[in-house]
């Protein structure tokens, strides 16, 4: 994985060299009413890169990830994803852009009263028509179930396809949430504290899963982490969120063997 800061990319255009995600002097706030928690944030992320966000509790990691996921508007500066500026897009174009960003939240945010297969295939809503979405709620085709099963297989719980979501364990819920993001086939995967409440061993499993999926599918991954040593081991770059802005931290050791 090369991430030498070469300056040869063309500005804005979505060429092969252009960054997938680009923040220039961005200010972000956790809600419309609140003051910005981060300002003058600049960051470039290229396809396939794996980035850890580290920082103290309350530093603004969740806020930054939600802004990148286009759920919060930028207050100042410029944010582009795949060469597009979310604030300038129509509703339909914004939806199209959102299908390219997978977001895994800390609370997993599944819909308990829908079965697992419905929750997983919710990741396909962005490319489905409304009629298709309604039809899938009432009856599902084999190829759709096969797609859902494949996504669950990638996260190791294919046998839960037809289970009740409310009966899943916390770890299984997280994997369903990852599977939902995989169905989107996103270019950029955002994971907010995916290992926050896990024991050390499971935490490594989940991080290994996320990073290997990202590498295998060419997705860029941005994940917030509380454990610097895990960040060192699993990610290409470490970005520290502190003091109201972000700074890239030099790695202590060279990245683990990149595939």
């Amino acid at each position: 994985m090369t991430h030498t800061p070469d300056m040869s990319e063309r500005d804005g255009a979505a060429g092969a060299d252009a960054p997938l995600l680009c923040l220039e002097d961005v200010s972000v706030a956790p809600s419309d009413a609140a003051d910005p928690v981060l300002s003058r944030v600049s960051l470039e992320v290229r396809a396939g890169e794996c980035i850890a966000l580290v920082g103290a509790s309350g530093a603004g990691k969740t806020t930054l990830l939600r802004t990148i996921g286009t759920l919060l508007p930028v207050r100042a500066g410029r944010l582009t994803v795949a060469g597009q500026e979310p604030s300038a897009l129509s509703e339909a174009d914004l939806r199209a852009l959102r299908t390219r960003i997978g977001l895994i939240t800390q609370s997993h945010d599944l819909v308990d009263s829908l079965r697992v297969d419905k929750n997983v295939m919710a990741g396909a809503l962005g490319r489905w028509t409304n009629v298709h979405a309604l039809r899938f709620l009432l009856w599902s085709k084999d190829e759709e179930l096969a797609e859902a099963r494949a996504a669950l297989e990638a996260v190791g719980i294919a046998d839960k396809l037809m289970n009740r979501t409310s009966a899943l364990s916390g770890g299984e819920r997280q994997r369903v949430s990852i599977a939902r993001a995989l169905i989107q086939a996103p270019a950029l995967l955002l994971a907010d504290e995916p290992v926050a409440s896990l024991d050390p061993e499971t935490a490594e499993d989940v991080l290994a899963l996320l990073t290997s999926l990202a590498r295998a599918r060419g997705m860029a991954l941005i994940t917030s982490l509380h454990q610097p040593e895990l960040a060192e081991r699993f990610c290409d770059r470490i970005v520290e969120v502190a003091g109201g802005t972000v700074t890239e931290r030099p790695r202590l050791v060279t990245a683990g063997q990149s595939a």
Binding site: T70, T99, V111, L125, G126, A133, L134, R180
Partner: peptide, 27 residues
């Protein structure tokens, strides 16, 4: 949470209603 997560996948408003609002408040 779940409603925003659905919106974040690029779902339309009707799809968010069908896959989120309705099942979440079904009972």
């Amino acid at each position: 949470g779940p409603v925003e997560a659905l919106a974040a996948t690029g779902a339309s408003r009707l799809q968010v209603a069908l896959y989120g609002l309705l099942p979440l408040t079904r009972a």
